[in-house]
């Protein structure tokens, strides 16, 4: 009953995605809870560069093979399933990034074991693994239990702070090069760099929305810096777009985009219904406004009554000093 906890690393072009560290942080807690070991499963080709930050885990199982160089889900899933079949982990944690999206389901399907989607919390309760998952776009949290070992858990992004799973040293590493590679009918052809056109704000996970409270075009820079340290983008209320300070594609609201980022910071936005219509579904809403009566505080989760030129730079600075260099690039 004391198999290890596995975290399957999410890699994109040879770089670890933040979601991996988040999963490692959660996996660490679970391993302590169970009195067992945490192992990170790293699948790829020529992987040594990424090992140096996984020290929160007890060990890394480094599976290297040319066939694993490209993110073809069925190939990776088969390798994970085979390894699990011989090493008997108790739980396999898979961060739900676009790279690893199919993996959890495929591994569970191949092994015929339970899979739990969109987990936010995992722990041992009465000899059973209990998972908290979010359903219906975050409107409901459900608790499920599974006794089966292994069980597979998909983790929503942001389950833990990245810094909790990040270390500046490598753990013990076991290299596995003998793998059972399945033939595949899916072939990576090439990567396409983001197109030059403007970003699609409905796909951003972090948005800093600016309103008329920003006052001048030059002040936009302050919000852009905040968006940068958070790995997000800026968008605006209609008057800001009307001014030509941001392109039309950045307008949020009834006549613009409907956005549901994980984080929406409304800076100097009053919260007119036409604006709120486009952002009320955001995961976490933080409003900064100099008017304590501004309606935006009725939709925000956290509010600050202040001048945005005072708060935004301070926030940018505070975030900068907390996060590690360069990590947010692939947030």
């Amino acid at each position: 009953m004391s198999g290890n906890i596995w975290v399957v690393a999410a890699l994109c072009r040879g770089r670890l995605l933040d979601a991996t560290y988040e999963a490692v942080a959660l996996g660490r807690e679970l391993a302590e809870n169970l009195g067992t070991k945490l192992e990170v499963l790293l699948l790829g080709h020529e992987l040594k560069d990424v090992l140096g930050t996984l020290g929160i885990a007890d060990a890394v199982l480094c599976v290297e093979h040319a066939a694993l160089a490209d993110p073809v889900p069925e190939v990776h899933a088969h390798v994970v399933a085979r390894l699990a079949g011989t090493r008997h982990p108790q739980a396999i944690l898979v961060p739900q990034t676009n790279v690893t999206w199919e993996l959890g389901s495929l591994v569970a399907g191949e092994l015929g074991v339970p899979y739990v989607n969109s987990c936010t919390e995992l722990r041992m309760v009465e000899q059973t693994l209990e998972a908290h998952t979010v359903l219906y776009g975050g409107k409901v949290e459900a608790i499920v239990r599974t006794k089966h070992a292994p069980s597979i858990f998909g983790l929503v992004s942001g389950v833990r702070a990245v810094e909790k799973g990040y270390a500046d040293h490598a753990p013990a590493t076991e290299r596995i090069t003998e793998v059972d590679v399945q033939p595949t009918s899916v072939q990576l052809r090439r990567y396409l760099e983001p197109e030059a056109g403007d970003i699609d704000i409905s796909k951003e996970e972090v948005l800093v929305g600016v309103g008329r409270g920003i006052e001048t075009r030059d002040n936009l820079e302050v919000s852009k810096e905040l968006a940068d340290v958070l790995g997000g983008a800026i968008c605006g209320s209609r008057p800001v777009i009307d001014q030509g300070w941001l392109p039309l594609s950045r307008q949020v609201g009834k006549s613009g985009a409907t956005v549901k980022p994980k984080l929406y910071i409304a800076a100097g936005i009053s919260g007119a219904p036409e604006h709120v219509e486009g952002m009320k579904g955001s995961g976490l809403i933080i409003a900064i406004n100099s008017d304590p009566q501004a309606p935006i505080f009725q939709v925000a989760h956290y509010g600050i009554v202040a001048k945005l030129l005072d708060v935004l730079p301070a926030l940018t600075e505070a975030i900068r000093s907390r996060s590690r260099r360069g990590m947010k690039q692939y947030a």
Binding site: E22, S157, G158, V159, R160, A161, V162, E163, V206, L230, K262, L263, G283, L284, I285, I286, A287, F297, Q298, V299, A300, H301, Y302, G303, I304, V305, A306, D310, V311, P313, A314, L315, E317, A318, I319, R322, S323
Partner: peptide
């Protein structure tokens, strides 16, 4: 129904906000 208000000087508020962001896995 209403936002939880964070108060204090800009630096203090920024610190509290960072905690909120970290708790939501956003840092």
């Amino acid at each position: 129904g209403h936002a939880e208000m964070l108060e204090g000087l800009p630096e203090a508020v920024a610190g509290k906000l960072c905690d909120v962001l970290a708790a939501h896995g956003l840092l």
